[in-house]
Nucleic acid binder design. Structure first.
Lengths: 116, 116
DNA sequence: CCAACATTACCACGAGAGTGTCAAGGTTGG
DNA sequence: CCAACCTTGACACTCTCGTGGTAATGTTGG
Protein backbone atom coordinates (compact mmCIF):
# COMPACT_ATOMS: atom_id res chain seq x y z
CA UNK A 1 0.00 0.00 0.00
CA UNK A 2 1.57 3.24 -1.12
CA UNK A 3 -1.25 5.61 -0.23
CA UNK A 4 -0.75 7.77 2.84
CA UNK A 5 -3.31 8.74 5.45
CA UNK A 6 -4.02 12.39 6.05
CA UNK A 7 -1.59 12.59 8.96
CA UNK A 8 1.25 11.08 6.99
CA UNK A 9 0.46 13.23 3.99
CA UNK A 10 0.48 16.29 6.23
CA UNK A 11 3.94 15.46 7.54
CA UNK A 12 5.51 14.86 4.16
CA UNK A 13 3.96 17.90 2.48
CA UNK A 14 4.27 20.48 5.22
CA UNK A 15 0.58 21.24 5.31
CA UNK A 16 -1.48 20.54 8.43
CA UNK A 17 -4.16 17.84 8.31
CA UNK A 18 -6.67 20.61 8.85
CA UNK A 19 -5.45 22.42 5.75
CA UNK A 20 -5.50 19.27 3.65
CA UNK A 21 -9.21 18.98 4.36
CA UNK A 22 -9.65 22.68 3.62
CA UNK A 23 -7.76 22.37 0.34
CA UNK A 24 -9.99 19.48 -0.63
CA UNK A 25 -13.09 21.48 0.21
CA UNK A 26 -11.93 24.30 -2.03
CA UNK A 27 -11.63 21.83 -4.90
CA UNK A 28 -7.88 21.97 -5.44
CA UNK A 29 -6.58 18.56 -4.33
CA UNK A 30 -9.09 15.77 -3.78
CA UNK A 31 -7.56 12.47 -2.67
CA UNK A 32 -9.20 9.09 -3.19
CA UNK A 33 -11.13 7.55 -0.31
CA UNK A 34 -10.93 4.12 1.29
CA UNK A 35 -14.09 2.06 1.61
CA UNK A 36 -14.53 3.50 5.10
CA UNK A 37 -14.15 7.07 3.88
CA UNK A 38 -10.52 7.63 4.87
CA UNK A 39 -8.60 9.99 2.61
CA UNK A 40 -5.84 8.22 0.69
CA UNK A 41 -3.07 10.44 -0.68
CA UNK A 42 -1.10 8.90 -3.53
CA UNK A 43 2.17 10.13 -5.07
CA UNK A 44 0.32 12.40 -7.49
CA UNK A 45 -1.58 14.17 -4.72
CA UNK A 46 1.52 14.54 -2.59
CA UNK A 47 3.43 16.13 -5.45
CA UNK A 48 0.52 18.40 -6.21
CA UNK A 49 0.35 19.51 -2.59
CA UNK A 50 4.05 20.28 -2.47
CA UNK A 51 4.01 22.31 -5.67
CA UNK A 52 0.88 24.11 -4.47
CA UNK A 53 2.68 25.20 -1.34
CA UNK A 54 5.60 26.34 -3.43
CA UNK A 55 3.31 28.27 -5.75
CA UNK A 56 1.48 30.09 -2.97
CA UNK A 57 4.68 31.04 -1.23
CA UNK A 58 6.52 32.22 -4.29
CA UNK A 59 3.87 34.67 -5.43
CA UNK A 60 2.15 35.52 -2.15
CA UNK A 61 -1.18 34.35 -3.45
CA UNK A 62 -3.97 32.43 -1.74
CA UNK A 63 -5.84 29.21 -2.27
CA UNK A 64 -8.82 31.22 -3.44
CA UNK A 65 -6.69 32.76 -6.18
CA UNK A 66 -5.67 29.35 -7.46
CA UNK A 67 -9.27 28.19 -7.14
CA UNK A 68 -10.33 31.12 -9.29
CA UNK A 69 -7.67 30.30 -11.86
CA UNK A 70 -8.99 26.74 -11.92
CA UNK A 71 -12.47 28.07 -12.50
CA UNK A 72 -11.23 30.15 -15.41
CA UNK A 73 -9.38 27.17 -16.80
CA UNK A 74 -12.53 25.08 -16.86
CA UNK A 75 -14.96 27.74 -18.06
CA UNK A 76 -14.22 29.22 -21.45
CA UNK A 77 -17.03 31.72 -20.98
CA UNK A 78 -15.62 33.12 -17.74
CA UNK A 79 -12.10 33.10 -19.11
CA UNK A 80 -13.07 34.94 -22.27
CA UNK A 81 -15.19 37.50 -20.46
CA UNK A 82 -12.44 38.29 -17.98
CA UNK A 83 -9.80 38.43 -20.70
CA UNK A 84 -12.12 40.66 -22.69
CA UNK A 85 -12.51 43.08 -19.84
CA UNK A 86 -8.78 43.21 -19.23
CA UNK A 87 -8.23 43.86 -22.93
CA UNK A 88 -10.38 46.98 -22.89
CA UNK A 89 -7.60 49.48 -23.10
CA UNK A 90 -7.75 52.18 -20.45
CA UNK A 91 -7.09 54.89 -23.02
CA UNK A 92 -5.50 57.51 -20.82
CA UNK A 93 -4.33 56.06 -17.55
CA UNK A 94 -1.01 54.35 -17.81
CA UNK A 95 -0.01 51.24 -15.96
CA UNK A 96 -1.04 50.68 -12.36
CA UNK A 97 -0.62 46.96 -12.83
CA UNK A 98 -1.43 45.71 -9.36
CA UNK A 99 2.18 45.52 -8.31
CA UNK A 100 2.71 49.19 -8.83
CA UNK A 101 -0.03 50.69 -6.77
CA UNK A 102 1.77 49.68 -3.64
CA UNK A 103 4.77 51.73 -4.61
CA UNK A 104 2.43 54.48 -5.74
CA UNK A 105 0.79 54.64 -2.33
CA UNK A 106 4.13 54.57 -0.61
CA UNK A 107 5.51 57.43 -2.65
CA UNK A 108 2.46 59.49 -1.88
CA UNK A 109 2.83 58.81 1.78
CA UNK A 110 6.45 59.87 1.74
CA UNK A 111 5.54 63.04 -0.06
CA UNK A 112 2.98 63.89 2.57
CA UNK A 113 5.47 63.23 5.33
CA UNK A 114 8.08 65.38 3.63
CA UNK A 115 5.61 68.23 3.27
CA UNK A 116 4.79 68.18 6.95
CA UNK B 1 -14.64 69.21 -20.60
CA UNK B 2 -16.29 65.85 -20.95
CA UNK B 3 -14.67 64.17 -17.97
CA UNK B 4 -16.93 63.48 -15.01
CA UNK B 5 -16.15 63.97 -11.34
CA UNK B 6 -16.31 61.00 -9.00
CA UNK B 7 -19.86 61.82 -7.94
CA UNK B 8 -21.13 62.04 -11.49
CA UNK B 9 -19.25 58.91 -12.48
CA UNK B 10 -20.78 57.10 -9.52
CA UNK B 11 -24.28 58.04 -10.60
CA UNK B 12 -23.87 56.98 -14.21
CA UNK B 13 -22.12 53.70 -13.45
CA UNK B 14 -24.07 52.49 -10.46
CA UNK B 15 -21.02 52.24 -8.22
CA UNK B 16 -20.71 54.41 -5.12
CA UNK B 17 -18.01 57.08 -4.97
CA UNK B 18 -16.51 55.07 -2.15
CA UNK B 19 -16.24 52.00 -4.37
CA UNK B 20 -14.74 53.95 -7.25
CA UNK B 21 -11.86 54.90 -4.96
CA UNK B 22 -11.60 51.33 -3.78
CA UNK B 23 -11.55 50.02 -7.36
CA UNK B 24 -8.78 52.43 -8.18
CA UNK B 25 -6.80 51.33 -5.16
CA UNK B 26 -7.03 47.71 -6.28
CA UNK B 27 -5.57 48.71 -9.61
CA UNK B 28 -8.54 47.96 -11.85
CA UNK B 29 -9.75 51.36 -13.06
CA UNK B 30 -7.50 54.37 -12.54
CA UNK B 31 -8.94 57.65 -13.84
CA UNK B 32 -6.83 60.66 -14.80
CA UNK B 33 -6.39 63.43 -12.27
CA UNK B 34 -6.90 67.16 -12.56
CA UNK B 35 -4.08 69.48 -11.55
CA UNK B 36 -5.66 69.69 -8.10
CA UNK B 37 -5.84 65.91 -7.77
CA UNK B 38 -9.54 65.44 -8.61
CA UNK B 39 -10.37 62.16 -10.35
CA UNK B 40 -11.56 62.68 -13.91
CA UNK B 41 -13.55 59.83 -15.42
CA UNK B 42 -13.66 59.82 -19.22
CA UNK B 43 -15.86 57.69 -21.51
CA UNK B 44 -13.36 54.83 -21.50
CA UNK B 45 -13.29 54.60 -17.71
CA UNK B 46 -17.07 54.82 -17.47
CA UNK B 47 -17.49 51.99 -19.93
CA UNK B 48 -14.89 49.95 -18.11
CA UNK B 49 -16.68 50.48 -14.82
CA UNK B 50 -20.01 49.42 -16.27
CA UNK B 51 -18.64 46.26 -17.83
CA UNK B 52 -16.79 45.49 -14.61
CA UNK B 53 -20.02 45.63 -12.67
CA UNK B 54 -21.63 43.39 -15.27
CA UNK B 55 -18.74 40.91 -15.06
CA UNK B 56 -18.78 40.64 -11.26
CA UNK B 57 -22.52 40.15 -11.18
CA UNK B 58 -22.68 37.59 -13.94
CA UNK B 59 -20.15 35.21 -12.44
CA UNK B 60 -20.46 35.98 -8.74
CA UNK B 61 -16.79 36.87 -8.53
CA UNK B 62 -15.03 39.65 -6.63
CA UNK B 63 -12.76 42.54 -7.43
CA UNK B 64 -9.87 40.57 -5.96
CA UNK B 65 -10.51 37.80 -8.48
CA UNK B 66 -10.31 40.22 -11.39
CA UNK B 67 -7.25 41.82 -9.81
CA UNK B 68 -5.61 38.42 -9.68
CA UNK B 69 -6.51 37.78 -13.32
CA UNK B 70 -4.91 41.11 -14.16
CA UNK B 71 -1.80 40.08 -12.30
CA UNK B 72 -1.64 36.86 -14.26
CA UNK B 73 -2.18 38.77 -17.49
CA UNK B 74 0.82 40.99 -16.82
CA UNK B 75 3.17 38.39 -15.39
CA UNK B 76 4.05 35.55 -17.72
CA UNK B 77 5.91 33.84 -14.93
CA UNK B 78 2.93 33.77 -12.59
CA UNK B 79 0.59 32.79 -15.39
CA UNK B 80 2.79 29.92 -16.53
CA UNK B 81 3.38 28.62 -13.03
CA UNK B 82 -0.31 28.64 -12.20
CA UNK B 83 -1.20 27.05 -15.52
CA UNK B 84 1.52 24.50 -14.94
CA UNK B 85 0.13 23.56 -11.56
CA UNK B 86 -3.38 23.24 -12.92
CA UNK B 87 -2.08 21.03 -15.71
CA UNK B 88 -0.60 18.53 -13.26
CA UNK B 89 -3.08 15.79 -13.68
CA UNK B 90 -5.41 15.31 -10.72
CA UNK B 91 -5.41 11.52 -10.70
CA UNK B 92 -9.09 11.18 -9.92
CA UNK B 93 -11.50 14.05 -10.45
CA UNK B 94 -14.19 13.24 -7.93
CA UNK B 95 -15.40 14.29 -4.51
CA UNK B 96 -15.79 17.98 -4.86
CA UNK B 97 -17.77 18.61 -1.71
CA UNK B 98 -21.48 19.24 -1.54
CA UNK B 99 -21.70 23.04 -1.59
CA UNK B 100 -19.70 23.34 -4.76
CA UNK B 101 -20.01 26.58 -6.64
CA UNK B 102 -18.75 25.02 -9.84
CA UNK B 103 -20.97 23.43 -12.43
CA UNK B 104 -18.71 20.63 -13.41
CA UNK B 105 -21.22 18.88 -15.59
CA UNK B 106 -21.57 21.94 -17.74
CA UNK B 107 -17.85 22.50 -18.12
CA UNK B 108 -16.74 18.92 -18.60
CA UNK B 109 -16.28 19.10 -22.34
CA UNK B 110 -14.43 22.40 -22.05
CA UNK B 111 -12.00 20.84 -19.62
CA UNK B 112 -11.26 18.16 -22.18
CA UNK B 113 -10.62 20.82 -24.79
CA UNK B 114 -8.32 22.74 -22.47
CA UNK B 115 -6.33 19.61 -21.77
CA UNK B 116 -5.72 19.07 -25.48
C1' DC C 1 -16.79 84.88 -0.97
C1' DC C 2 -18.98 80.65 -0.06
C1' DA C 3 -21.82 76.46 -0.79
C1' DA C 4 -20.95 72.34 -2.85
C1' DC C 5 -17.94 69.64 -4.32
C1' DA C 6 -13.22 67.02 -4.01
C1' DT C 7 -9.20 64.73 -1.34
C1' DT C 8 -7.09 61.50 2.20
C1' DA C 9 -7.31 59.26 6.69
C1' DC C 10 -9.57 57.10 9.86
C1' DC C 11 -13.52 53.86 12.49
C1' DA C 12 -16.75 50.16 11.81
C1' DC C 13 -18.85 46.01 10.41
C1' DG C 14 -20.45 41.71 8.11
C1' DA C 15 -18.59 38.05 5.20
C1' DG C 16 -15.14 35.00 3.72
C1' DA C 17 -10.29 33.02 3.87
C1' DG C 18 -7.06 30.55 6.55
C1' DT C 19 -5.93 28.45 10.49
C1' DG C 20 -6.20 25.85 15.32
C1' DT C 21 -8.60 23.00 18.59
C1' DC C 22 -11.99 20.16 20.59
C1' DA C 23 -16.04 16.81 20.58
C1' DA C 24 -18.56 12.66 19.29
C1' DG C 25 -18.28 8.75 16.91
C1' DG C 26 -16.42 5.11 13.28
C1' DT C 27 -12.11 2.16 11.62
C1' DT C 28 -7.80 -0.24 11.92
C1' DG C 29 -4.11 -3.19 13.31
C1' DG C 30 -1.67 -5.81 16.57
C1' DC D 1 -10.09 -5.61 22.63
C1' DC D 2 -8.13 -1.20 22.55
C1' DA D 3 -5.00 2.55 21.54
C1' DA D 4 -4.31 5.23 17.80
C1' DC D 5 -5.90 6.65 14.00
C1' DC D 6 -9.83 8.52 10.88
C1' DT D 7 -14.42 11.16 9.95
C1' DT D 8 -17.53 15.40 10.16
C1' DG D 9 -19.04 19.37 12.73
C1' DA D 10 -18.57 23.28 15.52
C1' DC D 11 -16.42 27.35 18.18
C1' DA D 12 -13.04 30.80 17.66
C1' DC D 13 -9.57 33.86 16.21
C1' DT D 14 -6.89 36.80 12.81
C1' DC D 15 -6.82 38.99 8.15
C1' DT D 16 -8.53 40.74 4.09
C1' DC D 17 -12.50 42.16 1.09
C1' DG D 18 -16.29 45.04 0.22
C1' DT D 19 -18.93 48.52 1.98
C1' DG D 20 -20.61 52.51 4.56
C1' DG D 21 -19.69 56.35 7.29
C1' DT D 22 -17.16 60.80 9.40
C1' DA D 23 -13.58 64.31 9.99
C1' DA D 24 -10.26 67.61 8.52
C1' DT D 25 -8.86 70.05 4.71
C1' DG D 26 -8.27 71.72 -0.22
C1' DT D 27 -10.79 73.24 -4.84
C1' DT D 28 -14.33 75.00 -7.88
C1' DG D 29 -17.85 77.83 -9.85
C1' DG D 30 -21.32 81.33 -9.72
Amino acid sequence: MEALTIREAAQTTGWSARMLRYIERSGLVAPARSSAGYRLYGPAELQRLRTLKELLGRYEIGLSDVAFAARMATSAELRDDVAGWLAEKPSRPEHVSAQDWLRFEQDKHEKLLAAA
